[in-house]
Design a protein around this nucleic acid. Structure first.
Lengths: 336, 336
DNA sequence: GAAACTATTGTGAGCGCTAACAACTTAGTC
DNA sequence: GACTAAGTTGTTAGCGCTCACAATAGTTTC
């Protein structure tokens, strides 16, 4: 594949072949308007014949742009973040951008600063942040990298654009469904409260209950993992305070289901369970999980829309919200 | 964060401040041996004072290296590939490399070529490929990008290095465990046979059975998804030909478990089940899944080791193999 | 038909860095 | 003490591209 013996052709070589100046070739490449049709065609032919490809380093050196988007993420192997990343990557590559990633091992101010510096060294044109901790937003606010920043999973801030799935709405859908089924004591297994999404879901749960005149005092906090769902499930199986549970994500739901199964608590006959995310496996839990679907790919795409209009049109900070969707399966029914 | 009003400092600025030539500063940055200790310290002080950072584009323009590793992947949101990616990213960043990604929407020669071109445009120093289809290796073999290539999940080929978890060995561990428990009719639910791993696992299964003098005629092919595991499970529940099943991955196992549960087939009492991967959730299936653990992070790290020695020491094509590990949980027992 | 535009093309400089070489210092050798 | 070797520093020339500007050709206007 090219790059073999002979030097890669450069602008000058194309120019010579087409009988024009290097600057004219540059104009053709960059779609400048003032190039005659005949010349453009001649240049394009020369480009094709020589297999010319623009040298990004040289371009980057002079323009101080790199056609690269940096994606900063943590928990990148989890279903949600991984799919958001994919959405961003696809949208970015379609728009002709490279995608550089930095995965945070631990979320700390220092680690975030490091990663941002890493990106700035690379002269990225923009940074997408998939770090769902509230702390992150503060760090970004303080840092002001000098390039557009889009935070996925938050509404952003004064200096940072945001793209998010409406978590609160999702929680309301879930709780609304349980209320409709006739449940009155609806508990919540929350995610870690330093996660923006976890807080929003808890708020949505609470808001929906209060709007219906119900109590919102049954909350336990997990850590997103199936293991924590299992531990909590064992306790709840013993107590039996609620007839329905809204769980912060599908993985905790899995652990919960397992604990209930061990303890002889039947789902949905004894307790209804609703999850959040709709991972591909959730339809095959025992029983299949009623849950709230988030379209992460769409989220990633929206995120790049924001980014591109910030980079290319110089748009300022803005926000986009993706609607979640309730998926009803076998883990919910009317209370006994 | 820097990059504000005033121009970023460059080599020349540091040189002036330290009272040396720009070339001496360059030597300090690149750790050339022949710089006196006093000068080096003076230069380092100047670098710190000015907050100097090397311009990668300029460096890249002259060296034709970019300190960037391209990672080409498909199915990047799946547990295995996602974690391999993380392993590669960590190892790469630790070694001072940037990581650029390209996610394939569909695996085709043309898409692979496109992605490789995309990376070459960026002058990547090496390409890591996480595309577990046999076809991919052929495309790479044909392409010869001109930079080192490491294929994850294969033994590589003449021109491509390989880093893999020993799939065949993993299958043998799984099947060995079932045989030890006393099973004699052990079926296999294979992954799609255009995946290298799927083939290797099937071979391991087959080899272990034949070594024990048992039949290897009970195979069905799924597509890795929980859905396909479910469909297959429904059929197998009706037929009841095997007393134990070695399933190609954990997701299909989940679907299988679900189908068995619906059909009243008890696991492990009626049928034992072993999965592959050991995803974080697998210990919370009903019942908890016996499975084969793959250390994807380690795999990613090994992969970067190969890459770095190819780039820096000019090592030729080689191979590394990571050992899998059997994790015994509740889904296996002696046959009735 | 000269002035005043507009569309098209070319020229020169320089982005910030490294590689190759030149030059100077200091020490080591006989 | 002249001659070499080794260590240290400086000088020059690009890498391939875009930007600002200059130059030319073609078109309109009164």
């Amino acid at each position: 594949m090219a790059k073999t013996s002979a030097r890669m052709p450069r602008l000058e070589d194309v120019a010579e072949r087409a009988g024009v100046s290097h600057q004219t070739v540059s104009r053709v490449i960059n779609n400048h308007p003032n190039v005659s049709k005949a010349t453009r065609e001649r240049v394009e032919a020369a480009i094709a014949e020589l297999g010319y490809r623009r040298n990004t380093a040289a371009r980057s050196l002079v323009t101080r742009k790199s056609q690269t988007i940096g994606v900063l993420g943590s928990e990148l192997s989890q279903y949600g973040p991984a799919n958001t990343l994919l959405g961003v990557e696809h949208a970015a590559r379609d728009a002709g951008y490279f995608v550089s990633i930095a995965a945070l091992r631990a979320v700390s101010r220092e680690a975030i600063f490091d990663a941002i510096r890493h990106f700035l060294d690379q002269s990225v044109d923009g940074i997408v942040v998939i770090v769902p901790h509230s702390e992150t937003l503060l760090a970004l606010e303080e840092l002001k990298p000098g390039v557009p920043v889009v935070a996925v999973g938050s509404l952003g801030s004064e200096s940072v654009s945001g793209a998010m799935v409406d978590q609160k709405r999702g929680a309301e859908l879930a709780v609304g469904h349980l209320i409709e089924q006739g449940h009155r004591r609806i508990g919540h297994i929350a995610g870690p409260q330093d996660w923006i999404d976890a807080v929003a879901r808890a708020e949505g749960w609470s808001a929906a209950l209060r709007a219906a005149g119900l109590d919102d005092n049954l909350v336990v906090e997990g850590d997103w993992s199936a293991g924590s769902g299992y531990e909590i499930g064992r306790k709840l199986a013993a107590e039996r305070t609620a007839t329905a549970l809204f769980v912060g994500n599908d993985q905790m739901s899995l652990g919960l289901l397992r604990a209930f199964s061990e303890a002889g608590v039947r789902v949905p006959e004894d307790v209804s369970v609703v999850g959040f995310d709709d991972q591909p496996e959730s339809g095959y839990f025992t029983p299949p999980l009623t849950t709230v679907r988030q379209d992460f790919e769409e989220l990633g795409r929206r995120c790049m829309d924001l980014m591109l209009s910030a980079i290319e049109k110089g748009d300022t900070v803005s926000t986009t919200v993706v609607e979640p969707e309730l998926v009803v399966r076998g883990s919910t029914s009317a209370p006994a």
